[in-house]
Nucleic acid binder design. Structure first.
Lengths: 137, 137
DNA sequence: CAATAGTTGAGAACCAGTTGCAACTGACGC
DNA sequence: GCGTCAGTTGCAACTGGTTCTCAACTATTG
């Protein structure tokens, strides 16, 4: 765990991003999260974990980490933005409208179709967003 | 033009929605728009067209019309919500990241795939959102 | 260890959108 | 046509999430 964290921190340093106490704490919180917390939740977890961090810094750090490609920002309908570690491979999201639960999934055929559609119209895809708002059968 | 508008207004009235001067004006502005304006823009257009409407009423009316299924709300990344008339059949959106232009498209295969994926995991799709952020080749 | 450019905390500001309330007005019935 | 009254409006105050300002601090490099 320390190994991985240090590696990532090293990479950030090399990219010119200072690894402050606050940022290290947030990196740990994000690595430990297996859900999709918003900024307020990440702040609460960091504080609970004993790190003195302000909410403003949480927002700034999330923006910084996103710019570094370390985390992804998820903006579902109406809710505050949520965040997830970016170390996995690309996936889309299903949101259970009753429970609010977020389920990740991948489907290569959909990915290919999207690229085809864009190509047909003379475009390249920069990124995309696919969200299925679903209800359990 | 008056024919169509009156028809829609009649339907709204029957649904218990009062067709006030402000709402009629917004319906006209929305029907005339071939782009995807946000609330502030719709307000500006209504005012320019000579209708006295407040921004608060624009927001309230948009919510009402959405509830009636007359218009759809589009929430792209970070920007304020945009709106479009709902009288066409379902479609998704491509957003040109350079120009901000919004292009509509439909693809039945993608629709089917989405339903399949949800079904495989034991869910039914309530609604979905697919946005391709693209760049011209 | 000193220098310094990047980072932080606190609170104010911001922005899109919502709401409370008193004044108003469509739609229905007569 | 006209009164009735629940639904609607405008304004200004408010909200919630997020960003900014600025003085004090601190991680990094030489």
């Amino acid at each position: 765990m320390t190994g991985r964290a240090t590696k990532l921190e090293q990479a950030l340093r090399q990219a010119g991003v200072r690894v402050t106490r606050q940022r290290a704490a947030l990196l740990r919180v994000i690595a430990a999260a297996d859900d999709h917390p918003d900024a307020a939740e990440l702040h609460a977890r960091a504080v609970t974990a004993g790190a003195g961090v302000s909410l403003a810094t949480v927002y700034r750090t999330l923006t910084t980490l996103q710019a570094q490609g370390v985390i992804d920002k998820l903006e579902f309908q109406g809710e505050p933005a949520r965040w997830e570690a970016a170390d996995q491979r690309h996936h889309d999201h299903m949101i259970d409208v009753d429970s609010g639960e977020v389920i990740e999934f991948t489907n290569d055929r959909i990915e290919r179709l999207q690229a085809e559609i864009a190509a047909e119209m003379g475009y390249d895809i920069v990124h995309h967003r696919l969200e299925l708002y679903v209800r359990r059968r």
